[in-house]
């Protein structure tokens, strides 16, 4: 049971949250002119690193705010938590 440090509420148990998948996926600014491949990448293609993963979490049963988490997908260590819109931090072991 992960203990996730919500930047607004503090550390809370995993069951209060929902994971929203990879962070920093950018919706193409001009969808009209985006190619099918660009649109595919936006809709479907995701990073799936073995190691540090930047992902979105929502404190669904709490403040309901979205934020970003850097988590290790093998050890489940939470390496950083940062707000929406912020750039991913330098993390690693």
């Amino acid at each position: 049971m992960l203990l996730i440090p919500c930047p607004h509420c503090g550390p809370r148990a995993e069951v209060e949250f929902r994971c929203g998948g990879e962070a920093h996926v950018v919706r193409p600014a001009e969808p009209e002119s985006a190619s099918d491949e660009v649109w595919r990448d936006y809709l479907f293609v995701r990073k799936s690193p073995k190691g540090v993963h930047f992902e979105r979490w929502n404190h669904a049963h709490g403040c309901q705010r979205w934020f970003n988490v850097a988590r290790d997908t093998v050890s489940d260590e939470i390496l950083a938590v940062y707000r929406m819109g912020e750039a991913p931090p330098e993390v690693g072991r």
Binding site: E14, C19, E55, R71, S75
Partner: peptide
């Protein structure tokens, strides 16, 4: 479990 993982182990929920 709902989040990306290579852990070959799951969590309690």
């Amino acid at each position: 479990d709902g989040y990306a993982s290579y852990a070959q182990r799951g969590n309690l929920p």
